[in-house]
């Protein structure tokens, strides 16, 4: 990539910093230059977020319909999957999967609910009372 071709198209990252890129200067040698961003990757990030938001909305609907427990919704809201979530709670994936069922969820102990709430950065009552 030539230095003059380095895109300067601001994206979400440019609020924080410009990023360092390796480009060719006029003499055909490598040097570094700062970029404000590139629409091609900004659009990739945007499309990833469209996907994330769709998953969150589907999860909300599933909780509303009584198919999934609130843990499922907050897991999606926090961009987690079962593996990441069980990392934060310390419960094995197989138990985490059970906790996604509304029937199992309603009998969870306060202690377990507190673990989940803290993993999601919410209060126990927000978790318990989420209806979708």
């Amino acid at each position: 990539m030539k230095k003059e071709d380095l895109p300067q198209e601001p994206g979400p990252l440019s609020r924080l910093t410009r990023e360092l890129c390796y480009v060719k200067n006029e003499e055909g040698k490598y040097e570094t230059a700062l970029s404000n961003g590139w629409d091609v990757k900004k659009d990739a990030l945007d499309s990833a977020w469209v996907g994330v938001n769709e998953r969150i909305e589907e999860a909300r609907q599933a909780v509303f319909n009584g198919e999934k427990s609130p843990i499922y919704y907050f897991m999606e809201l926090r961009l987690m999957d079962v593996g990441v979530l069980s990392g934060y709670t310390g419960y094995f994936s197989i138990f985490t999967k059970r906790h996604l069922k509304p029937s199992v969820f309603k009998n969870l102990s306060e202690r377990k609910l507190a673990k989940y709430a803290s993993a999601f950065d919410i209060t126990v009552s927000e978790l318990k009372n989420f209806k979708g």
Binding site: Y22, K41, D43, A44
Partner: peptide
């Protein structure tokens, strides 16, 4: 489409130098 977007992010996002 989402999968292709993920390739582009791994390839071009901050940290790769382009």
């Amino acid at each position: 489409s989402l999968y292709l977007g993920q390739i582009v992010r791994m390839q071009e996002e901050i940290g790769t130098g382009g």
